Simulated scan of single mutants.
Amino acid sequence: MILDRRALILSSLATAGLAGCADIVGPPEPPKLYRLSPRFAAVPGPSVPWALSVLRPETAGSFETERLVLTRPPSGLDFYANTAWSDRTPNLIQTALVEAFEASGRIAQVARDSDGIRADYLLNTDLRDFEARYDQGEGAPLAVIRLAVRLMETRGRRIVGTAVFAKEVRASANTVDAVVAAHTEAFSGLAADLVPWVLKAPMPK
């Protein structure tokens, strides 16, 4: 019984010591947050007479995250440590697409599907790539973005057009700040191709 009491006392002291160490170390630092803030330009041409609802992109599980994705062929997918986007990647893309159409100056009614506007067209996208690709060892990676797009009439869900838009931009350095800047530039270029393509659609019958 004496030995049991001594073991209990030693166990309690060890537990208290570990708890004290945890207090000294403290919780892990929160990740540094980054925003996707592309620059969009006006698109020449007349205003379109229809309304557009932008759906939240579909995507594979690897991009359904706030974390910044990187790939190192052939080893596969990984994430940058202690960094994150300000929202889940599909939400960032949806918001940026709405802003790109607003900046075009050619459409009066465009919103997320969750906003509930009476839209004539639905923009459905599939996010297939949104990553920093280390194709040169530890050199500056490529920011790679690829979106498959389907434009559908709201009534009847008839598909009126499909396309795949992609951009790659080499980061200026192997740093997270440079990678975020490259993603921003890549998405700006992708939107400059995607928005005029959508705006060519006629008024649905």
Results as ranks from 00 to 15, higher is better:
G26V: 08
P30W: 04
P30K: 10
L33C: 08
S37N: 12
P38D: 05
R39W: 03
A42P: 03
A42Q: 14
V43C: 05
V43T: 12
V43Y: 00
P44H: 09
P49F: 08
V54S: 02
V54H: 00
R56W: 03
R56S: 12
P57F: 01
P57N: 09
P57E: 05
G61F: 11
F63L: 14
E64R: 12
E66C: 08
L70G: 02
P74W: 07
T83P: 00
T83C: 10
A84Q: 12
S86H: 10
R88D: 07
P90R: 05
N91R: 13
Q94V: 05
T95S: 14
T95Y: 10
T95W: 10
A96T: 12
A100I: 05
A103M: 04
A103V: 07
A103I: 09
G105P: 04
R106F: 07
I107C: 07
Q109N: 13
Q109Y: 06
D113E: 15
S114C: 09
S114E: 15
I117S: 08
R118H: 12
L122H: 12
L122W: 12
N124V: 15
N124S: 15
D126L: 11
F130V: 02
F130M: 05
Y134H: 15
D135S: 13
Q136T: 15
P141W: 02
